[in-house]
């Protein structure tokens, strides 16, 4: 049987990914394929290794074992910008924001817009604020570009982190618990953003503890337990009950 995700070229392909932190084996033998326009939910208990997997794909640290292929080619990301350069965007679980800077400054951190002034390249504050406001609007977030992140609510902070991923034409967007701290209305916006990404052919990896979110937007769900992949099923072939039992370990594998 040819399922949609093994037909055609995968945007991301992991083979036997493993990661050790000293004596802790955070990941072991993880295989995964994601096709363009596919939304994969990654679920698992606390400490299952979800964030570690995301960080390996995003180039934060190299895997101890295994191979990463992106767009069919093997890749070795030394730094996060290497991953970003090929089209991988991430919303980190801790959001990775600088509290002392404004929302707009955080959105554009590391890829500031500049304008030429003679031989100098100066920050284009206006353009960045305008674009940030646009992105916050898209996310239906009442976040003001000039406010300091220090003074923001959890949801506003999340909007800032998500807005970042919209700056470039990413091929893969990974979101590590993007809906953990936000209101019902904003959850809707994040999910509709994921829909839009899918329509544009962007692959999305959604990490979430919220079963309804995963079942609302994902094509497939992958369950991790103790650093291993226990299940990888099309959303139509499983149920929240089965996923729950896989997460808790009541059911070993599927």
């Amino acid at each position: 049987m040819v399922t949609p995700h093994d037909a055609g070229l995968a945007v991301l392909e992991l083979k036997g990914i493993g990661k050790e932190f000293g004596a802790i084996r955070a990941l072991h033998g993880v295989d995964l394929r994601i096709s363009p326009g596919e939304v994969v939910g990654l679920m698992g208990d606390n400490g299952a290794g979800k964030s570690t997997l995301v960080k390996i794909i995003a180039g934060n640290f190299p895997p101890s074992h295994g191979e990463i292929r992106f767009d069919g080619k093997p890749v070795h990301f030394g730094r996060p910008i290497d991953a970003r350069a090929v089209g991988i965007e991430v919303v980190y679980q801790d959001l990775a924001l600088a509290d002392n800077l404004t929302a707009a400054a955080n959105v554009f951190l590391g890829r500031e817009l500049k304008r030429k002034l003679g031989p100098f390249a100066l920050l284009d504050h206006k353009a960045m604020a305008a674009r940030a406001l646009e992105l916050f609007g898209e996310l239906r977030s009442e976040t003001r570009p000039h406010d300091l992140v220090k003074q923001m609510s959890g949801g506003q902070r999340q909007a800032v982190a998500i807005a970042r991923t919209r700056l470039s034409n990413a091929k893969l967007v990974m979101m590590d618990e993007p809906t953990a701290a936000i209101s019902v209305r904003q959850v809707e916006q994040v999910l509709s953003l994921i829909h839009r990404l899918k329509e544009q052919g962007v692959a999305v990896m959604l990490i979430s503890h919220r079963m309804p979110d995963v079942f609302a937007v994902c094509d497939r769900v992958v369950v991790m337990r103790r650093g291993e992949k226990r299940a990888d099923k099309a959303i139509g072939d499983t149920s929240p009950e089965e996923v729950t039992s896989l997460i808790t370990g009541a059911k070993e594998a599927a």
């Binding site: 996060p80 600088a98 002392n100 800077l101 590391g110 500031e112 100098f120 390249a121």
Partner: peptide, 28 residues
Amino acid sequence: AVVLHHTGFGRHVFAVGGNEKAAALTGI
């Protein structure tokens, strides 16, 4: 003042001081 508030370098100096980990993650 110009360097700190109107250049990429200045922005990165503040970002490193505000959250060094985040600065590294965003590619600074």
